[in-house]
Design a protein around this nucleic acid. Structure first.
Lengths: 230, 230
DNA sequence: TGAATAGTGTCTTTCAGACAATATGCC
DNA sequence: GGCATATTGTCTGAAAGACACTATTCA
């Protein structure tokens, strides 16, 4: 196979007589009470110097999930815990190089303040608030909006919020996470009534003491896996 | 590009140093009060003489939706009205030829008793009850089950049932369609109360007279498009 | 004892689910 | 009038949503 070149003039599209396939990852996390997504800064054509979702080409011997994990690791140094397939985007001109179809994945991680270590095709990696995203490469804006919808709706019928929380958490932290993602305030009593009725949590017995006020019970999820409840 | 050959011994996998991409279509329709899906009988290796979902390789200049419509037309003679993307299946060994990733689409059509006209890779095309499917090629059994889940759950929060009905229909026909797809009986009064509360239908003014009993009001959908209501 | 956050219960409204009698047309 | 299907309303229980006070710790 011919080597793929790196700018518009000597780009050989004949290499691609079938569509190429990539995986892109929308990784969400909460930082400073704000929902953020991880972007990398491209240092090659096309969209050089634009921010983009981490992602890359699928290798013949790896599953799409493996591609997602590998690319995220390569481009940011982060490891993937929870992820699920989002949608496959296939507009004909979404990539100026040639026909590229991308399977988008959506992933969550708790706030860990991990240092980001971009390598390869990225000159930088950074968390961006979903409230003010920069100009993005390709159709990545659309992909992020799709992922955000999916995340928001899954809050209502699954324990997906787990992906954004540390192992142990307080009911206040849980509620704050819902509020940040949904972008609206929730009633404290109704929220707790609902959450307790779901029977998804157990008390750890520990309490969180952090200031001059009543300490909060710490909970964790009963189930290791994603659970649907509606 | 080398021509692809047709049996295991002289199959040249080096043609595929990147994953190949196909589209498969799960087309549902109701026939004789039974939910059926359209299958074709393969007349080439692999899975020769097995039933399989209609589908095929994505061409460079077509969208996935166009691939779906083209393949369905080629293999069955049918035209696609409603369809939506289902999921992308990518297990490494799902296709014995080489690495093939497939984007599954799920589609609906009203019962039209259209004659099926298989061509190209199919020696036959036929509707099969989802209650007793034959041995299927590839991972197509899994794909159909996934599509069926999607269809069933969408009945509860969208007007997707439209895809299975003629333009005008009675409330009894609507309810029967729900019952066939869900595989369970529903209460007539509660069903109608709910449906009318959704405000999705208008009376056509016409009535269906078909036998020695009270004629039924004919309705049609207000909205041309898919509408979500929950 | 004042400041800050944690934790809890009642009332009202809405919706799902159980349930049966009347209406209309054809023979 | 008899048969077959169409059409309609009430009651009950469960859950969502509005709403305010007490509990605990620390300074």
């Amino acid at each position: 196979m011919k080597k793929q070149s790196l700018n518009k003039n000597n780009y050989d599209a004949s290499v691609f007589d079938r569509p190429s396939l990539t995986v892109d990852i929308v990784l969400f996390s909460i930082e400073n009470n704000d929902l953020k997504t991880l972007l990398i800064k491209r240092n090659i054509w096309p969209y050089k110097n634009h921010w983009a979702l981490p992602g890359g080409f699928v290798k013949p011997k790896e599953t799409l999930e493996q591609t997602a994990a590998r690319e995220l690791k390569e481009e940011t140094g982060l490891s993937l815990s929870f992820s699920e397939q989002l949608y496959t985007f296939s507009k004909i001109d979404r990539d100026p190089r040639t026909r590229v179809i991308t399977v988008a994945y959506f992933a969550l991680m708790p706030n860990t303040n991990s240092k980001l270590n971009p390598t390869t095709d990225a000159s930088a990696a950074a968390w961006h608030s979903i409230k003010k995203l920069p100009d993005l490469a390709f159709d990545h804006q659309e992909i992020i909006q799709y992922a955000l919808q999916r995340l928001r709706s899954k809050l209502y019928y699954s324990n997906i919020v787990k992906g954004l929380l540390a192992k142990d958490f307080t009911m206040s932290q849980l509620q704050a996470t819902y509020e940040i993602v949904l972008g609206k305030k929730l009633d404290k009593r109704n929220f707790r009534k609902k959450m307790h009725s779901l029977n998804l949590f157990v008390k750890t017995g520990k309490k969180q003491l952090d200031g001059s006020h009543r300490p909060a019970e710490l909970y964790h999820f009963k189930n290791r896996k994603l659970v649907y409840f509606a």
